[in-house]
Design a protein around this nucleic acid. Structure first.
Lengths: 175, 175
DNA sequence: ATAGAATAGTTCAATAGTTGAACTATATCA
DNA sequence: TGATATAGTTCAACTATTGAACTATTCTAT
């Protein structure tokens, strides 16, 4: 993934070093701006999605459904990893989704410890409906960005996600 | 805020329209990639920051302290707006922070309905310490990005935050 | 083959965050 | 002045999360 711009920066041969130094200096500012903006984006988007969601479904529950929808099925441990929470937390969420008949537990016949989580028909329908609504919401805001900046943004965001995900270290929680 | 790249896209005069059409088509893909990456980034970063934080301080509490630190002082209503939650939620958080002697309630003498929230000495010390740790954490990851892509990313992120914040509509919650 | 370790998931108690309604107190405005 | 709006709190109900203890399986190393 290389940058698109061809506007040269310093180009006194030591490109590598020049960039590093500059960032060192700008670190506090970049960090502060990143955090402030990220905070606002997350809070506002979550609030908006919350308003789109049927009253008896929480943000975590919706995220869980959507993740399973995207993968077809998932296990508790996988969800705990992805969501960076303990497994007991996932159990609680799954129990509630199951009580609402949105999720089905399917036993693995080979390894009888594992349980595959899948969406029920109703769960699939509801998740698809939410996907549509969210897409519609996003489309309202995406028109303010041109393709190029949007793609650049997404690429850097994905790179960041990759870098963070690779640092498997803490990863938040486990037992 | 204009894009930096000078690599022309289509330039058959109808730049405006060309871009719009292209995004329309790419909307589902962009949305999916954005959401997936954003989800990972948030979960991972939150988990990492959680690990840096003294055990008796939660993510919400830390965010609250940091916001107040950045502004000097804030009111409950202001925090409820920024955090997109109800005021009673803020009351609960403030009560706990106050019990830990990290926050002080200062009464406004002009308008006796409002209460300014400020950090105590201990709150200031703790928040500054956390800022340092977070900066250190970020610096580990920022080296993977060059200045240019970092700045582009931040600019688009801030633009997104601005667009979302301006849509004052739902804003999540209020009473 | 089997004992010990690892893995997948659940249960439970405790705590934090959130909602929404009802409430108090104060300020604004018409 | 009386109605309305604003700032904040309290309360009950609920969800999410943690961490420890637990069951049930599977793996692995001798």
């Amino acid at each position: 993934m290389e940058t698109i711009s061809n506007k040269p920066m310093d180009d006194i041969e030591g490109k590598e070093k020049a960039n590093t130094v500059m960032e060192e200096k700008m670190l506090p500012e970049i960090t502060a701006r990143y955090e402030t903006a990220m905070f606002t984006v997350n809070r506002k988007l979550n609030a908006m999605i919350r308003e789109l969601t049927p009253g008896d479904l929480t943000a975590e529950q919706l995220s869980t459904l959507r993740y399973i929808r995207s993968k077809g099925s998932a296990t508790s441990s996988e969800l705990a990893d992805i969501f960076c929470v303990g497994r007991s937390s996932i159990t609680a969420i799954i129990t509630r989704l199951s009580a609402k008949n949105l999720i089905i537990r399917r036993l693995d016949e080979k390894d009888r410890r594992v349980i595959y989580l899948e969406l029920s028909e109703e769960g699939t329908r509801l998740t698809d409906e939410m996907e549509t609504r969210i897409l519609h919401l996003f489309s309202k805001y995406l028109v303010d960005f041109d393709s190029e900046e949007a793609m650049l943004f997404i690429n850097v965001l994905e790179k960041l996600a990759k870098v963070l995900a690779e640092t498997a270290d803490g990863s938040g929680n486990q037992q």
